[in-house]
Design a protein around this nucleic acid. Structure first.
Lengths: 145, 145
DNA sequence: TCTCAATTGAGATTTAGTTTCAATAAGAAT
DNA sequence: ATTCTTATTGAAACTAAATCTCAATTGAGA
């Protein structure tokens, strides 16, 4: 278990590696997503800037979220199922989701075993795992009757 | 390990349970998806009917795929990432996907362990697991340089 | 057979995300 | 510090995918 690199560093490295630039907008977006504790989507993030009077285009938000995802700063989350939802990646507290087909309730879960097996599988296929999207669909306790 | 119920039965049971009807269209769609060996999406399925002259509305196809998903007749697949892709559920041969962020290559993988842990977790949360969506994103061997 | 809610078709509509393109800004090279 | 090249941005137009509308129809239980 090595000390995790600072997230901003990782983000900047990704940009450099891809020949991209660290713009003011990217800085703002980075800071904002790090400050949000719950899940969000591109539009709700955009609205936060708008509400506070910071002018960043909707398209810019949409354009940059994939980079934050790729650098691991944010991870996929399970919103209502349709849109792309995100949440910041925590060193502690990564989790996946169970989605109830009945009432749409979301149950968060985590399993180290699961994570380890994904790592194993990635090694087996010489795949460099960056992030994953893992959702279980079914019925919560209440909706099983 | 109990003998898996006939898929058509499961589908019909779902309909009954939900107070829905087994229409001609549903029958056609059921049969068609069972006959497709590769992955598909709502539109490509619709096109198959159209091409052969069977008139089923696009909306009907879209409307019914979620039911087939819920009954386990089809499962989510990983197409190009954007659309909802499906593939028929095989007793043998269930798999998940690794998606390369570089070249979009899809690697199929399967792990009994992974499946078992999902079952365990579902039991732990009293969740009745129906299907899951599990995709690993990262870089394939070629794209790591 | 009757009844009634579920279903369908066809097109309109919505939603989410992407593209366009001229103007601007990052940051490497000089 | 200045120049130069290329990525980036904003704003709105656009696209793709999926959903909705509503009148006509159909399934299946009474």
């Amino acid at each position: 278990m090595q000390k995790p690199k600072d997230q901003l560093e990782v983000f900047k490295e990704l940009l450099t590696r891809k020949g991209l630039k660290y713009t003011h907008e990217r800085e703002s977006i980075y800071e904002e997503v790090r400050a949000i504790n719950h899940h969000f989507n591109a539009d709700s993030l955009y609205e936060r800037f708008k509400k506070r009077g910071e002018r960043i285009a909707r398209a810019t938000v949409y354009r940059n979220l994939p980079l934050l995802l790729e650098s691991g700063v944010v991870q996929k989350s399970a919103g209502n199922g349709k849109r792309d939802f995100y949440e910041r990646t925590r060193t502690k507290g990564h989790h996946d989701h169970m989605v109830c087909l009945g009432c749409r309730k979301i149950i968060e879960f985590h399993s180290d075993e699961l994570e380890q097996i994904q790592e194993q599988l990635s090694r087996k296929y010489k795949f460099k795992l960056v992030f994953h999207d893992h959702r279980l669909f079914g019925y919560c306790e209440k909706c099983q009757s």
